[in-house]
Design a protein around this nucleic acid. Structure first.
Length: 227
DNA sequence: GCGACAG
DNA sequence: ATCTTGTCGC
């Protein structure tokens, strides 16, 4: 799997802001026609406590069984500091390297973080989607921007996440009486379809299986490498 | 000026 | 993000 667009990652904060503004204009917020989804990928990143070196894991699941069909991990990627709003500049370099190692091409990628639910509408999921020209969904555990009323307490209940009078995502309850997740369009998908997938990918736990599998793998890989 | 701030 | 397995409770 190869990115369609590449950038320098040794970029200064001032230029990163400008780049986000440019890439945000390329985000497609609707479903593609006749798009069969066979493989869904999940990605996650862990950091070494002392060197702060990142390690990303990419996991590909079969869209019907949710079984893991392929995995890959990155290595030797330099770290970029965590700056709210510039999260993708910290996590994408290792994630891209892991994705490039995959032999299968995912038809959809679910990210641990936001898509357009971002100050400049280019969170991690959208940034990744535009670079690879692949459908992506942002599924965050906490809010970055926007306001929403508390959704109902049952699985499937949701409420719109609004910022500057624009609906930028949905706060979705994936399990009864469990804290909701923040779903947003990443790229090449509609918000309703994104929510359908997140709900379908979360049959038993709060977070989607893609995120859970990627998290498990990255945790083990980083424990093995940074010990 | 103060608080908020994906992972 | 990271500290951290089994265990108590609905």
């Amino acid at each position: 799997m190869e990115p369609v667009i590449t950038h320098p990652w040794d970029i200064r904060e001032a230029d990163a802001w400008k780049l986000q503004q440019h890439l945000a204009s390329k985000v497609i917020r609707h479903d593609p026609g006749n798009h069969e989804i066979q493989y869904i990928a999940g990605v996650d990143v862990a950091y070494d406590n002392h060197s702060d070196q990142p390690l990303a894991a990419a996991v590909v699941l079969d869209a019907d069984s949710f079984g893991v069909v392929e995995t890959a991990v990155s290595e030797g990627i330099p770290s970029f500091p965590y700056i709210p709003g510039l999260f993708s500049f910290r996590e994408l370099p290792p994630i891209i390297q892991a994705l490039k190692k995959l032999t299968l091409s995912p038809d959809l990628i679910v990210c641990d973080g936001h898509g357009v639910a971002h100050p400049r509408r280019l969170g991690l999921a959208s940034h990744l989607g535009v670079l690879f020209e692949v459908p992506t969904i942002g599924c965050g555990k906490t809010r970055l921007v926007g306001e929403a009323v508390e959704p109902g307490i049952h699985r499937g209940d949701s409420s719109p996440l609004v910022d500057q009078r624009e609906v930028i995502g949905h706060v979705l309850r994936t399990q009864d009486h469990t804290k909701p997740v923040f779903v947003s369009i990443g790229h090449r998908i509609s918000l309703p379809t994104a929510c359908d997938w997140i709900l379908k990918l979360s049959p038993r736990y709060r977070l989607p299986e893609t995120t859970r599998q990627a998290d498990q793998l990255v945790r083990k890989a980083s424990a093995a490498r940074f010990r």
